[in-house]
């Protein structure tokens, strides 16, 4: 008996070491591109092509970052991305709060149809709607405006936002609002004063999800933005990489600047994010 126990613990230790080794390897593979991006971004052009390559260069430089940040096109793109992303997050939250609440509290005609339409909405390929959207925007003279980009992004963010929030609101007990209504609150008043404070984690996860999507949206911006006036960061990066085909240092510095805000928000709010995705995406 004692002998058996011993052999079990031994295989356990071997297995534990294997487990950590596999985890380490996969984590390395997952994180390495980010490390390599940062590493290249602080290298002088002469060091980028060194064989064997080094992770930390001999003479680290911030020159690539200066190069990117003083490029006026990149700066404009940064501003455009912020304007569009913030607007999309705010509008998505407002519309999804109302619709999510309506769906979770009331039964009206077309209730079921709307729910299914939203689910399907998540699954419509963006490339299928970009052609008509382009015509619509061009005909109404909205091509190359922030408004058209914001509108297009809503197609991606609203279905998910409504679905996530309506399932979240269903977990908030109705009795609380009823009490508030007896105390003289209107329906909307009860929603904003009673329900929303409780649903804060849900709101945060919708906001983060929307933020990440709007920040990296590529296809719509590629077609609906035709000049630097509305060009967003992903498009600017793509063009930047083309312009300086050989300057990988600056391209990587620009990439790091775009990736940084997303990673920062993700790291500070990952609790909400992970839970929200698990609730919204799969349970539907």
């Amino acid at each position: 008996m004692v002998k058996m126990k011993k052999s079990v613990t031994r295989t356990n230790i071997v297995w534990q070491i294997c487990t950590y080794a596999i985890l380490l390897l996969v984590i390395l593979a997952a994180v390495f591109p980010a490390i390599w991006m940062l590493s290249t971004s602080i290298k002088l052009p002469t060091e980028q092509y060194d064989i064997p390559p080094q992770i930390i260069p001999d003479t680290p430089t911030l020159g690539n970052y200066v190069n990117v940040l003083t490029n006026s096109k990149m700066f404009d793109a940064f501003v455009n991305s912020i304007i569009i992303t913030v607007s999309v997050v705010v509008i998505t939250l407002l519309i999804s709060i109302l619709a999510g609440y309506g769906l979770s509290r009331y039964k009206f005609r077309g209730h079921g149809v709307l729910k299914i339409a939203l689910l399907f909405g998540q699954m419509i390929p963006s490339v299928v709607i970009i052609i008509p959207l382009y015509f619509l925007v061009a005909k109404t003279g909205l091509l190359d405006t922030h408004f058209s980009l914001i509108l297009a992004d809503l197609a991606l963010t609203i279905p998910m936002g409504v679905i996530m929030l309506s399932s979240f609101f269903e977990t908030v007990p109705k009795e609380l609002e009823e009490a508030a209504k007896i105390d003289g609150c209107t329906g909307i008043g009860a929603l904003f004063r009673v329900v929303l404070p409780i649903a804060k984690p849900g709101l945060i996860s919708v906001a983060i999800y929307t933020y990440i999507h709007a920040w990296e949206e590529f296809l719509f911006a590629l077609n609906l933005s035709t000049s630097t006036k509305t060009r967003t960061l992903p498009i600017a990066i793509h063009m930047f990489a083309g312009e300086f085909a050989v300057d990988w240092g600056s391209t990587m510095a620009a990439s790091a600047i775009v990736a940084f805000p997303v990673l920062l928000i993700f790291l500070s709010c990952n609790r909400y994010f992970v839970k929200g995705m698990a609730d919204g995406a799969v349970k539907g």
Partner: peptide
């Protein structure tokens, strides 16, 4: 009936999803 709550979402979805989709299918 509570339909007012979902109206903004319905309008947005109609403009940016349903209309483009039908347009594509017809085109």
């Amino acid at each position: 009936s509570g339909a007012g709550y979902v109206l903004p979402a319905v309008i947005t979805v109609a403009v940016v999803m349903i209309y483009p989709l039908l347009y594509t299918l017809v085109m």
